Simulated scan of single mutants.
Amino acid sequence: MSLWTHWRRGAVVALLATAACVPVAERESRPAPPPAAPPVPAPPPPQRVRHDLVLTGAAEQGAVITGRASPGVRSLTLDGAPVPVARDGAFLLGFDRDAGTEAELVATFTDGQRIVRPITVAAGRWRIEHVDAPWRGGATSDADFARRRPAELAQIAAARAKAVESDGWRQAFRWPVTGRLSGFFGAQRIYRGKAGAYHSGTDIAVPAGTPFVAPADGVVTLAAETPFTLEGHLLIVDHGMGLSSAFLHCQRLDVKVGDRVVQGQRLGTVGRTGRATGPHMHWGLTWRGKRLDPGKLAGPIGD
Rank of each mutant, 00 (worst) to 15 (best):
S2F: 07
L3Y: 09
W4M: 11
W4L: 15
R9P: 00
A11P: 07
V12S: 11
T18I: 15
A20W: 13
A25D: 12
R27M: 12
A32M: 11
P38F: 10
P45D: 06
Q47P: 07
R48W: 03
V49L: 14
D52E: 15
G57E: 00
A58D: 13
Q61Y: 02
G67A: 10
L78P: 05
A81F: 01
P84E: 12
A86H: 02
A86W: 00
R87H: 13
R87K: 12
G94D: 04
R97L: 10
A99N: 04
A99R: 10
G100M: 04
A107K: 00
A107H: 02
T110R: 14
G112V: 07
Q113A: 15
A123E: 14
I128C: 01
A133H: 00
P134R: 03
R136G: 00
T140A: 15
T140H: 11
Q155R: 15
A159V: 06
R160I: 01
A161I: 06
A161K: 10
V164K: 04
S166D: 06
G168C: 01
A172Q: 15
W175V: 11
V177P: 03
R180C: 04
L181T: 14
S182D: 12
G186F: 03
I190C: 04
R192S: 09
K194A: 11
T202E: 12
P207W: 00
P207E: 03
A216E: 05
G218T: 08
V219W: 00
V219Q: 12
H233F: 10
G240I: 04
S245P: 01
H249M: 04
H249P: 07
V255P: 09
D259R: 10
R260Q: 14
V261G: 05
Q263I: 05
R266D: 02
G268V: 06
T269N: 08
T269P: 09
G271D: 01
G271P: 08
R275Q: 11
P279T: 06
H282N: 13
W287P: 03
K290F: 01
P294N: 05
L297S: 03
A298K: 05
